[in-house]
Write a protein that binds this DNA or RNA. Structure first.
Length: 350
DNA sequence: TAACCGTGGAC
DNA sequence: TGTCCAAGGTT
């Protein structure tokens, strides 16, 4: 007799899935949660180092909750989507103040926490607590669209269909446990298996259908539409943005300003974008740097000015009230800067 | 509802 | 080289 969708996933995961990722070594909800937040829209290989550094610096949710937001952002710098870091810190405080320092076990409570949506809540519930819940990330969407031949464009309506399928398959997954494994173990294998299959076999381009455990029942494979499904989302327009960066250096210290709480690179530090010091001389314009964001193409033109002691003091007096500060050798660990700013800083220190 | 929000890798 | 998009959530 043939296996169900869920049985195929579980059997495949035990044999061919990933079992040695750092966050698979534990069911500690704090560790699981941290990994799930970092992995949002971010590939496994990128997360590895950040995950280890974060746990080393903040071993418990209490440590994270009482940290300075600047330190959290500095540790997150380079990982992108910085609202995740601010929400992470907020969430840690919520867990300590509202849940006694222990993450709640069910998705209904988890989703009330900052930065945790439906899919992340389900993943935490499954991996930390063995609580049955359906995930729906990019991997699962791709698998379901192909397996069931779902060929409607990405939309809230399509998401509703996908969530319904995700829930339905979970029911059979829960029933698919066999004599060797308990309920929670089968559930974790199923959930991990979906991600592993999507990440390693059912990939966007050139899926490995020849070794896929679902190939016999896959509509997209049957109809030769795996290259077409899932349908692409219409590309959002990328606008060009030109920004001047004013770099003021004094004794190898660099003047930085805290960015606004909203918008690109919110709450991180960067160079002023308007001149702060009237310098009729000795300002050097450096080569323009391009930096691509999801919906913006940035052109950053740095202007470097060396300040004398009087100018430096004047700048300090005038701008420190606005969250400006000198980046020095001793404070860089609590100053989070976006990638291109880090690139410019490295350029300057050469 | 759709725009917003980073960075890096794959092709 | 340009395009797509990755363990998405918030506004």
């Amino acid at each position: 007799m043939s296996h169900t969708f869920a049985q195929n996933i579980i059997l495949w995961q035990r044999q061919h899935g990933r079992h040695s990722l750092p966050w698979q070594k534990t069911t500690d909800a704090y560790h699981v949660w941290l990994s799930e937040i970092m992995l949002q829209q971010t590939q496994v290989i990128t997360v590895m180092d950040y995950y280890e550094r974060f746990l080393n610096r903040f071993p418990t949710v209490q440590d994270l909750a009482r940290a300075d937001t600047d330190d959290v952002l500095a540790l997150w710098a380079g990982l992108g989507y910085y609202s995740r870091a601010r929400n992470l810190h907020h969430c840690a405080k919520q867990v300590v103040s509202d849940f006694g320092g222990t993450f709640p076990p069910n998705p209904e409570q988890l989703i009330t926490l900052k930065g945790i949506g439906a899919s992340t809540a389900a993943a935490i519930a499954v991996f930390a607590y063995g609580y049955p819940a359906a995930i729906l990330d990019g991997n699962v969407k791709r698998i379901l669209c192909r397996y069931f031949g779902i060929d409607t464009p990405p939309s809230a309506s399509t998401d509703k269909t996908l969530w319904a399928q995700a829930h339905e398959q979970l029911i059979t997954a829960v029933a698919a446990r066999d004599i060797q494994f308990d309920h929670a173990t089968a559930l974790r294998a199923y959930t991990q298996g979906l991600m592993d299959l999507g990440a390693t076999l059912c990939t966007r381009s050139k899926p490995a259908c020849g070794i896929c455990p679902l190939v016999n029942d896959c509509i997209a494979y049957r109809d030769n539409r795996t290259a077409e499904l899932p349908l692409r989302k219409t590309a959002t327009a990328v606008r060009d943005v030109h920004i001047d960066l004013y770099i003021y250096r004094h004794h190898n210290n660099i003047w930085l300003e805290k960015r606004p709480k909203t918008g690109i690179w919110a709450s991180l530090y960067s160079f002023p974008e308007h001149p702060l010091v009237s310098t009729d001389t000795s300002t050097q314009t450096l080569n323009t740097i391009t930096h691509r964001l999801t919906h913006r193409q940035l052109y950053l033109t740095p202007h470097l000015t060396e300040l004398d002691d009087v100018q430096a003091l004047a700048l300090e007096d005038m701008e420190s009230v606005n969250g400006g500060l000198w980046l020095t050798k001793s404070n860089h660990e609590s100053i989070g800067v976006p990638k291109p700013v880090a690139t410019v800083l490295n350029l300057l220190s050469e």
